[in-house]
Amino acid sequence: MANFFMQLSRYAIPAIFLIIPLYAWFKKVPVYESFVEGAKEGLFVTLRILPYLMGMLLAIGIFRAAGAFDLISNILAPLTSKIGLPSEVVPLAFMRPLSGTGALAMTADILSTYGPDSFIGRLASVIQGSTDTTFYIITVYFGSVGIRRYRHALTVGLIADAASMIAAFCFCYLYFS
């Protein structure tokens, strides 16, 4: 099953780049000109989101370099160890909504230190896979269209992340320990 999906993922991109232009050609769309037109818009969108990206990269980069994530997990360690949550995964839980590259580096580090088939390794894998960089997505998506009042978007996004992570912990606990 998993293998089927991996194969699907491998063929998906070339297939999409074949099917859509071919379909458009049958529908008598000027394929090349339309592609260029869309690409031009893509360039403008990039320019529009860049300043927001830089702002977030700066704040998160500084927060990371200062070692703030380690501090958070040190403070929470006595609490997390009580419920059987390995303290090594706690910084990942905080990094995940903030920085995609940061979280990926942390997961890679956990997998190579504790092994991918250990409880910690499995839990880190599930957390990495079942959540996304909420903070970053929200600020960039809203920034791109000039939304300034997010209302409850961030709260709801973080609630969803927390729910995914709690579910990840419970499932891993049930199946792997």
Binding site: I16, F17, I20, P21, Y23, A24, F26, K27, V29, V31, S34, F35, V36, E37, G38, A39, K40, E41, G42, L43, V45, T46
Partner: peptide
């Protein structure tokens, strides 16, 4: 962005 938005334009125009 340019790659996918180009493709998206094709997908939109063709229906």
């Amino acid at each position: 962005m340019m790659l996918w938005m180009g493709l998206l334009r094709l997908a939109e125009k063709s229906g």
